[in-house]
């Protein structure tokens, strides 16, 4: 009897403690939670709902339908754009790693004096307004642009290179410029975290320079590599401003389709559906990266 009462009060006491702690935590995160809920998840939920509504030019009826999704997956133009989006983002990502890794590598091996100077120089272009940056690229890549005039002056080419502007190439060039620091910095940080003594131990055990790169530096920088991929590849998939300004018809990306469905075609249902298709693909990719790299390595 006494023990029962005791354990009962005890349990109640413990429950109250848990509740208080839970309440305290909830109150702490309440404002940001509400903020995200109201301004992010609620609109997203509404979009998700709309994507299943009957929708046409400037019309939207709350009648459940899968038409929007069917339209997307049966239209060759949309599928081609999806394919283009992947080609552009993947191509840019591969080139970003090819360009960014060596930069990160030399940054990590350099003395701290120059490391931060070069990091600073690398970040400065990103700080410039991105419209100005894109227009600067238009000037550089255009038919009468800096690059074409220069090459023609040299006599390397007779005609301006057409593929430089309004093409997939143009989109990739601008994307690479935009995202390079975000690729370099995570790789740089993971490379810099490798203790000198680990590299020395590898040398001591008979590693050539290539062995050290292949068996020590590369595997130990994989977390940084994956982090940069998550950080960069996913936003590139959703890009719309860059393809809109320098992509032309062949550099059209899914982001542009979504934008036009909302702003010019007035088909919110289809726009929402495409938005969620892109989101689903992105989530699958993130899940894949996390599965390969392990969550703890990314955080």
């Amino acid at each position: 009897m006494t023990t029962a009462t005791l354990s009962h009060t005890h349990r109640r006491h413990r429950w109250r403690l848990t509740f208080q702690r839970y309440l305290g935590l909830t109150l702490n995160i309440f404002p940001p939670f509400i903020y995200i809920l109201l301004l992010f998840y609620v609109p997203m939920g509404m979009m998700f709902l709309i994507s299943f509504w009957k929708s046409g030019y400037m019309t939207l009826e709350p009648i459940f339908t899968l038409d929007n999704y069917i339209t997307f997956f049966t239209s060759p133009i949309y599928l081609k754009t999806l394919y283009n989006t992947f080609i552009i983002a993947t191509g840019a990502m591969i080139l970003l790693v090819i360009i960014g890794y060596p930069i990160a590598y030399y940054l990590a091996r350099m003395g701290p004096k120059y490391t931060y100077l070069i990091l600073f120089l690398l970040i400065i272009p990103v700080e410039i307004n991105f419209l100005i940056r894109i227009f600067a690229w238009k000037i550089a890549l255009g038919g009468n642009g800096v690059i074409n005039s220069f090459l023609m002056q040299l006599g390397v080419i007779q005609e301006p290179l057409k593929f430089l502007l309004y093409s997939k190439t143009a989109v990739m060039i601008v994307l690479i410029h935009e995202w390079l620091p975000y690729v370099v910095i995570p790789i740089f940080l993971s490379l810099r975290g490798i203790p000198q003594s680990v590299i020395e131990a590898a040398r001591d055990l008979g590693s050539s320079r290539y062995d050290i790169f292949r068996h020590i530096l590369l595997p130990l920088s994989v977390p940084g590599l994956f982090a940069s991929m998550v950080l960069v590849y996913i936003p590139m998939l959703g890009e719309f401003a860059v393809p809109a300004l320098v992509g032309g018809p062949s550099g059209y990306m899914l982001g542009n389709v979504i934008e036009s469905q909302f702003l010019s075609a007035g088909n919110w249902g289809l726009g929402s559906a495409i938005g969620f298709i892109l989101l689903a693909i992105t989530l699958v990719l993130v899940a894949l990266v996390i599965k390969i790299a392990g969550v703890e390595e990314l955080l």
Binding site: P195, S197, V198, E200, A201, A202, D204, L205, H215, I216, P219, L220
Partner: peptide, 12 residues
Amino acid sequence: NIVFQNYALFPH
């Protein structure tokens, strides 16, 4: 060959 002060094992 060297045995390092902080072991310098390969973490991966």
